[in-house]
């Protein structure tokens, strides 16, 4: 009996040792397989949670429905006007770029995803999306919410992808102040509270040259350096500034525009290659691979499940609004301005 016990302990120790020393690629494959296997269960569970939240939200807002409806109608009218104006501005912009001989910005597309989970150990601040490589989501892609930048994908399996949130201390993003175009590096700083107000700003923007002017309320947007985050995506606003005596740099505390506490939906900025790969995988999965079809024709017409749109960013505007995000509705690339 004692022998059996020792054999069991040895086997377990061996298994743990093997797991700890697995090559990265094998480890990623096994993790991906487990995640993909669990994804239907996670989808159901997160769907249930979302339903419960919706019901609570509905019951809470029951009295204010008429007022909310009026406010939303007004907002829709305002946004439609804005979309028309921006579509016109974009056309002018494109024409001017052509006339000036500027390089055309490459179109990127948004893949809409549901957030189905978080890091199960709590050592990293991540969110799990319900789409992976098969849905057009690859690693090292920027992820947005409707309010602003959320983070970047760090790994993608067939059906899921993990997003490292901006609030994680290991997530660093090159950013700039929209008004003054001053550069800095944004890093998660969970738990710190420089203002001492009990309301901790979640990120810290470092390496801002000391002589540059930074004001409370300044908009922070991505700078486009580093290759993962396109330029001009809204990150947040400056809530506090601090500098060390005699130091070369100053730091700013940034409140993120995206609400990280209750993430439900996210949009991954996908490249044409990601969508093409997703398309190929889907064709391979269905067993109906179109051998005669040219891979290059997939590009703009790939029908990835969920919202799809083209993203274009404009640099910081001196007038105030730092960046804008234009979504072109529909897989056919129909202009949202026209649709409105």
């Amino acid at each position: 009996m004692k022998e059996k016990k020792w054999i069991a302990i040895c086997i377990v120790a061996l298994v743990v040792l093997v797991m700890l020393n697995l090559p990265d690629a094998t480890s990623a494959r096994v993790k991906g397989a487990v995640r993909d296997g669990l994804s239907p269960l996670q989808l159901v569970a997160s769907g249930g949670m979302r339903e419960v939240r919706e019901i609570i939200r509905y019951i809470r807002g029951l009295g204010d429905l008429a007022q909310e409806n009026r406010a939303l109608t007004e907002e829709v009218a305002h946004l439609r006007g804005e979309v028309r104006r921006l579509a016109e501005a974009e056309r002018d912009n494109e024409n001017l770029r052509k006339q000036m001989g500027f390089r055309q910005r490459s179109a990127r597309r948004l893949v809409s995803c549901e957030v189905v989970g978080r890091d199960s150990t709590g050592w990293w601040q991540t969110a799990r999306l319900d789409k992976g490589v098969e849905g057009g989501v690859a690693a090292d892609r920027a992820v947005l919410t409707a309010d602003g930048l959320m983070g970047r994908t760090v790994s993608a399996s067939g059906r899921t992808a993990d997003v490292l949130l901006l609030t994680d201390p290991s997530c660093k993003v090159s950013v700039q102040l929209a008004q003054t175009a001053v550069f800095g590096v944004l890093q998660g700083a969970t738990g710190e509270d420089p203002a001492g107000e009990g309301k901790a700003p979640l990120c810290r923007m470092d390496y801002i040259p000391r002589l540059e002017s930074v004001r409370i309320g300044d908009e922070v947007v991505t700078s486009g350096l580093g290759g993962i985050f396109p330029r001009g995506l809204l990150v947040g606003h400056v809530v506090a500034v601090e500098s060390e005596e005699g130091g070369l740099y100053q730091s700013a505390w940034v409140e993120l525009s995206a609400e990280m506490g209750l993430l439900e939906y996210a949009f991954v900025i996908a490249t044409d290659e990601d969508l093409q790969r997703a398309h190929e995988l889907r064709l391979a999965g269905e067993g109906t691979a179109d051998e005669s079809g040219d891979a290059s024709d997939v590009g703009g017409d790939v029908d990835v499940e969920g919202t799809e749109g083209e993203v274009s960013q404009a640099g910081p505007q001196p007038g105030g609004a730092g960046c804008w995000l234009a979504l072109r509705a529909g897989p056919s690339g129909e202009d949202a301005g026209g649709a409105a």
Binding site: S27, K31, T121
Partner: peptide, 17 residues
Amino acid sequence: GVLADAMSLVPFGVSSL
């Protein structure tokens, strides 16, 4: 441990241990 590590960025085996 395998489940916990698979749904996290933690390397395989740490949670099991």
